[in-house]
Design a protein around this nucleic acid. Structure first.
Lengths: 314, 314
DNA sequence: AGTCTCCATAAATTTAAATTATCCGAATAA
DNA sequence: TTATTCGGATAATTTAAATTTATGGAGACT
């Protein structure tokens, strides 16, 4: 690897002299003394084995070699300026990319709004959303492919320690019924009523399904006795199934806001049972945190922390 | 004028780390110690207020900002390399331009051969030939528009001191006659024979004409008595006139080599009279001397210093 | 000629960078 | 697990570089 025969400062000086036509004026422009300029140019000339300026009269004129060097000089310094600008933009969130991870649910129903708000505030930062399983999202955060993520499930133990996991919000998994279901008139259901329902659930691999099963079990229910009409792998499909009267389901409230408002689906309350899970923000503390990521965490997330309060569209 | 937030060395280090994936390896590559690398990157990060590398595990990985900076870094360093190469080429005469000045005579008959030889040796240096009057050529050398010139006349006094004038060669101004002219049989003419001739001369503005007139006068001839058939402003025209038997003329031997060899023109000798002028090389000592100019002066010119010896075609 | 401006040079100072030596943490191996 | 290694950070010292102050000289303008 060859040594560089000049420094950026020397190029800066060269440019200044060429522009001012004088060592002295260049020195004034650069806020240094005249000998500093002279010596640097001498070094440059020695290094490159060329004469750059004719110092004959009162003006310093470029030689042929000087003109040649100046061309490159300008280009180089321009690139430097551009680099500075790009970095500044990155610092002031006028550029760059933010990669966000999310589970199916939050990725579908929550993130679009958050990202919308973020992009409204920082339109020059491009945002990428990656929807994966909790496990895979965790790994992506761990190795830096994702800046920050929101998950609703449990991380593998090893990742749990590696990553920073911050409880962020509560996600209620509401029992929803077809609006014309007989039980949808009851003010409050009893746990035992659940055994009477036909369920349309997510498939058993899904995080949300696992969470629901665990919560119901913990509350004393025998989940084996619950009748499962069918297992689907899409919340939208389940919603449609419920609306068509095919059965009940536990669904994140964030995913059914529109349907509740429209009355096409009914949310039931169950005595002594709250099916809620924690949504957690995960980041990688051992990694560089981009400004965009910082801002997203500090300014955007808190606005969506409460799911109970109706969210304004951006 | 803003200070630069980084140095080329820092960029070099950045690039090396990015390529090697490690501070240590980069340090080895650059023949410095590891702390030197660490500190420079720290300075860079501090200056730009960004984090460039994730130093988590065994490998130093670029952050987003780091990748952004690296892009510019590569471009900048490439430009630097290119600049170096261009300068090297200039130094090794693989580029650049040489501007040569000459009078009508040397420009027409001498320079083409010299330039041919030069370009054969240094084909990548482009050469420009400017044919002007002695006076104008002198000024062009003075203000640097011409690197070096060969003149046959007398410079204005002020330029004489300003420029370096080196006697370079003797240019004989031969008396030429139509080959079938009665006097062309005589072994040696007498000065008085000149009064019997009809002359075809250059116009009285021309340097060569002035030189000839002065030399004849100095040798005791009365130039008023010389019969001038016509005045032309081109040597070629005069040559044609002589060959056509219209008259005699004093012409630079360099301009009639071909005709002498072919016998279409006759060169006469005059007792006690040698019409010779000094061709002089002029350069500007107070100005940068390009390598090309140096080489031309040292290596090319001497090969053409003697007009008596037949010149080889390049 | 005299003065002014501009650049070069020398010596001294200040500033920056590199090195040596050491520590710390994470990954690897026993 | 513990030991070892590798890579990076840090501190103190040395070395090197760039800047400044002071001064001299050459050309240009009056």
């Amino acid at each position: 690897m060859p040594e560089l025969p000049f420094t950026l400062d020397q190029l800066r000086i060269l440019k200044a002299i060429a522009a001012q036509g004088s060592f002295k004026k260049a020195a004034d422009l650069l806020y240094v003394t005249q000998p500093a300029v002279s010596l640097q140019i001498q070094n440059l000339e020695k290094q490159l084995e060329i004469t750059i300026f004719d110092r004959g009269g009162r003006k310093a004129l470029l030689t042929e070699a000087g003109r040649l060097l100046l061309e490159y000089c300008e280009r180089i310094l321009n690139q430097c300026d551009e680099a500075c600008k790009a970095i500044e933009d990155l610092n002031s969130l006028k550029g760059g990319t933010l990669v966000i991870g999310a589970s199916q649910t939050t990725g579908t129903y929550l993130m679009p709004r958050m990202i919308g708000l973020f992009r409204q505030k920082y339109p020059e930062v491009s945002v990428q959303l990656q929807v994966h399983s909790t496990r895979r999202t965790g790994w992506s955060v761990a190795n830096g492919q994702i800046d920050l993520a929101i998950i609703g499930g449990q991380l593998p133990g090893d990742l749990e320690n590696l990553l920073q996991v911050i409880p962020y919000a509560t996600d209620e998994l509401a029992l929803v019924l077809p609006s014309k279901h007989p039980l949808s008139n009851k003010k409050e259901l009893l746990k035992e009523d659940l055994y009477k329902l036909n369920f349309v659930t997510l498939d058993s691999q899904s995080t949300t399904r696992k969470v629901v099963d665990k919560l119901l079990k913990d509350s004393g229910l025998d989940i084996q006795r619950l009748k499962i009409e069918m297992e689907l792998n899409s919340l939208e499909a389940i919603k449609n199934a419920v609306q068509s009267g095919l059965g009940a389901s536990f669904l994140p409230v964030v995913s059914i806001e529109r349907e509740l408002a429209a009355g096409t689906i009914h949310k039931a309350f169950i005595a002594d049972l709250e099916v809620k899970r924690e949504l957690k923000l995960i980041t990688n503390p051992s990694r560089y945190t981009s400004r965009a990521s910082e801002v997203f965490k500090k300014n955007i997330l808190p606005q969506f922390a409460s799911f109970e309060s109706p969210l304004r569209e951006p």
